[in-house]
Design a protein around this nucleic acid. Structure first.
Lengths: 175, 175
DNA sequence: TACATTTGCAAGTGATTACTCACTATTAAA
DNA sequence: TTTAATAGTGAGTAATCACTTGCAAATGTA
């Protein structure tokens, strides 16, 4: 990975997350990265290729994030850690852009990527079962619904009180 | 409202909801509507004006939908009717496109439109209070979170079991 | 009828789009 | 040191973009 290639990725990530994929021109990306426009196509073939590279990196990060949860034995911690994903998304500006883009792009491409969430649903189902919940699978699905709503409002609602809501949810799920 | 003006609105609604606002060219809209491209600008001034016209129509529909809930006295019915909004969004193809666009456009413009949801949150808060919930305001906010998650998965997850999830939620909120 | 307004179209406009191409600079093995 | 591959540039390209203009047809109104 050359220096300029990484600069392209970073610039693209920020612009795609801010303005959207379609609304961001390759010219803009090149200027922000301090690079000739042609270099984008040398490295990524097409504008879509550039997006795919960013999304792939996102999948990697998601796997790392989910792995810690899937391996967790304590059901209460599975739930808590899942909710903490939201705070992980706020960690720093790069991370924030990263996850914002992942959510944003879902609506632009209309692809949710069910397979990515599947292991998380399994882990949650297992956790709820251990906790004696009547319908653990439904409860797990409901929980992912909540996470989606959380992300939506976190990114789109001004002055959204993430900490307040999350700690309220945690108190509700404290068995 | 002339016949052709309405055809433009319908074509634009469908295309914007399917492919997104930025990704849809005025040329495409005109061709789908069976109309000259110039006519779009005669009636709506700009591409953005066309979008605004559609969104305004959406706000009207939202008001009608919410009014029925806000005026409801029975707290259980407030909750049930709120959840039923999802089924209202599935009523017919036009309605589906309408609400899909409203959700999609949130991410493209990054504006959630808090003020629109405010009366619904008030109604829900009131309902939860009547039902003796400890923290009715938080519970109401949590409920809108759920509704956002519901919409997200309804539009983006293939084979999403809307009826199953909604009836599960209803059973959870049956006090 | 006469006149004014609205509705509509076809053929433009300059700007911007994603992408290509011919070429040079740098790096790294042989 | 020669050779080959990779990294990088800058000036193109045709196509598409939102939008304008001039003029004709339809419609309302007195």
């Amino acid at each position: 990975m050359t220096d300029k290639k990484e600069k392209i990725l970073n610039a693209a990530l920020e612009l795609f997350a801010q303005d959207g994929f379609k609304a961001t021109s390759t010219n803009k990306v090149a200027r922000k990265a301090g690079v000739s426009e042609g270099l984008i196509f040398r490295h990524f073939e097409s504008k879509d290729g550039l997006l795919q590279a960013i999304i792939q990196e996102g999948e990697k990060r998601a796997k790392v994030l989910f792995a810690d949860i899937v391996l967790e034995h304590d059901p209460k911690l599975v739930i808590e850690k899942t909710l903490n994903i939201l705070f992980n998304m706020m960690a720093d500006e790069t991370a924030a852009n990263f996850w914002k883009l992942q959510h944003k792009i879902k609506w632009e491409t209309e692809q949710y990527g069910e397979h990515k969430v599947e292991p998380l649903i399994m882990a949650l189902t297992n956790a709820f079962e251990k906790l004696g919940v009547e319908n653990p699978q439904m409860e797990a699905k409901l929980f992912t619904l909540l996470m989606d709503g959380l992300a939506t409002q976190f990114y789109l609602v001004k002055e959204f009180d993430a900490h307040g809501i999350v700690s309220y949810i945690k108190s509700k799920y404290r068995f």
